[in-house]
Computed example of a mutant assay.
Amino acid sequence: MSRVPMTVRGVQRLREELEELKSVKRPAVINAIAEARAHGDLKENAEYHAAREQQGFIEGRIKELEASLSHAEVIDPAKLSAGSRIVFGATIDLVDLDNDDTEITYQIVGELEADIKQGWISVTSPVARALIGKHEGDTVEIVVPGGTRSYEIVGVRYL
């Protein structure tokens, strides 16, 4: 597996999730399995089967997180000096020229840390790909599922 770019914040969030799974959720599901076993016949014990299924999900997520973290290439946006040019880790302020000059802020992050509700878009998303390499002051046309949108880049920051 090749290196996967991630921000410092993204790596920290994944490490916190991994720690939560290992120290809280894994022991809780082990206790639930032990408790369900104590009830007797495992063939018709719904609690036991549900706990075993939950254990499978937790163990799978732990392996996924460990693999992701082992292949992460941590990039600290605050240490980048790209100026007004947009690269991975940039926080971009856009004005939607097609929607009453509505302002939108995005940060370009790794695939595993993307969360559109937080304004974190994946480096592989169509929006990020259209923005990378552009500069503050540029106007960009972005093809989105709803059609083509025009945005003006009004700010580029590296936080």
Rank of each mutant, 00 (worst) to 15 (best):
Q107Y: 01
I108M: 05
I108A: 03
I108D: 02
I108K: 02
I108V: 09
V109S: 11
V109N: 08
V109G: 11
V109K: 10
V109C: 12
G110C: 00
G110A: 05
G110S: 00
E111F: 04
E111D: 15
E111Q: 07
E111G: 00
E111V: 14
E111M: 04
L112R: 06
E113D: 05
E113N: 04
E113H: 06
E113V: 08
A114S: 07
A114Q: 00
D115G: 00
D115E: 15
D115V: 01
D115R: 04
I116E: 14
I116K: 15
I116Y: 06
K117V: 01
K117N: 14
K117I: 01
Q118Y: 08
Q118V: 02
Q118L: 14
G119L: 07
G119V: 07
W120K: 00
W120D: 04
W120C: 03
I121N: 02
I121C: 04
I121R: 02
I121H: 01
I121A: 00
I121Q: 01
S122V: 05
S122Q: 04
S122R: 01
V123G: 06
V123F: 11
T124M: 03
T124L: 04
T124I: 01
T124D: 15
S125G: 12
S125T: 03
S125L: 03
P126D: 15
P126T: 13
V127Q: 04
V127W: 00
V127M: 13
A128C: 10
A128Y: 09
A128W: 09
A128H: 13
A128T: 07
A128Q: 15
R129G: 03
R129Y: 00
R129F: 03
R129E: 15
A130Y: 11
A130L: 10
L131I: 05
L131W: 09
L131R: 08
I132F: 05
I132N: 12
I132Q: 13
I132Y: 06
I132R: 12
G133S: 10
G133H: 05
K134V: 02
K134T: 09
H135V: 05
H135I: 02
H135C: 06
E136L: 14
E136D: 11
G137P: 08
G137A: 12
G137V: 03
D138W: 02
T139N: 11
T139P: 06
V140P: 08
V140A: 06
V140L: 07
V140R: 08
V140T: 09
E141N: 14
E141C: 06
E141M: 13
E141R: 14
I142P: 00
V143E: 15
V144I: 15
V144C: 07
P145T: 03
P145V: 05
P145H: 09
P145M: 09
P145E: 07
G146F: 08
G146I: 10
G146P: 01
G146K: 14
G146A: 14
G147I: 10
G147P: 14
T148Q: 14
T148H: 04
T148S: 14
T148A: 13
R149P: 10
R149Y: 13
S150T: 15
S150A: 11
Y151G: 00
